[in-house]
Design a protein around this nucleic acid. Structure first.
Lengths: 144, 144
DNA sequence: TATTGTTATACTCTATAACTATA
DNA sequence: TATAGTTATAGAGTATAACAATA
């Protein structure tokens, strides 16, 4: 089906938002593809990338912007994969997640691939990336 | 918790992708907020905006990038709300969704609010939007 | 009392498969 | 036989609430 003329005349702002979401969707899909090659889901990959240092499970939940209850299963799975281990914190209520040696190697490989194969790296020159960064920062500034 | 220095040193590309996803998330949230004021979910709003002209349910599914089975419930709900009606197509297998008068008014109001209150409109000047559009188009070009 | 991690549960979103009525 | 819409169902993903251990 060809695009409908009348629907192509949505406002410039609406159209720009749409393209922004499309780009984000592509970036998300690219990320998912890259991390899937290493046997991880996107959330698992985000956790591994975050675990540069040992982190309380609750802090990881904050980083992932999800409820803490979800981290239990995530940690279970990453432990099964041999990528993280649970270690007790000083506060004995707290459990820290810590990368195993295997996990640290995986994290390095992950960071490398994500950086090299992300959409923005592959399709924009360095000055273009800088221009994009300026615009994105403006969009991310606190409202008001 | 302050940001960890070691985690701030992720590569430029990774960081830029992260900001891109953040901006998209804000755009998505803004869209959800605006359409919620009119009593619609994001998917319902996308459907209403698409229904400039009557559309087969299957075509709507294509536009929404979801399975056709999901459109049944969506159409049910929009019919309950009195914004669309099912009308038979020439091909009697096909059901067209058509905005009611109320639906058309809602669509106009929706398009207006989305255009005026989207993140990119509110936070970027016109030349900035143009620059952003150029960069986004580059990111959206066919690979290869 | 308040907090961490856990568990059980429920809700939303989406996809698959089987069904009907048309073609 | 192929397609449009419907229905039932199942799988992610995520949230809430109650609980035990600890502060």
């Amino acid at each position: 089906m060809p695009p409908r003329a009348t629907k192509a005349t949505l406002t410039e702002a609406h159209d720009l938002s749409r393209r922004l979401l499309q780009v984000a969707e592509r970036a998300r899909a690219d990320f998912a593809d890259v991390v899937a090659e290493l046997g991880l889901t996107p959330v698992q990959a985000r956790a591994v990338l975050w675990l540069d240092q040992p982190s309380a499970m609750r802090a990881l939940a904050g980083h992932l912007a999800c409820d803490a209850s979800n981290v239990t299963g995530l940690a279970d799975r990453l432990e099964q994969l041999g990528v993280v281990e649970r270690v007790p914190g000083e506060d004995r209520r707290v459990t820290l997640l810590q990368l195993t040696r295997k996990g640290a190697a995986l994290r390095a490989e992950l960071a490398d691939r994500v950086a090299q194969r992300s959409t923005v790296t592959a399709r924009l020159t360095s000055p273009e990336r800088q221009r994009l960064a300026v615009l994105l920062d403006k969009l991310l500034d606190q409202p008001g």
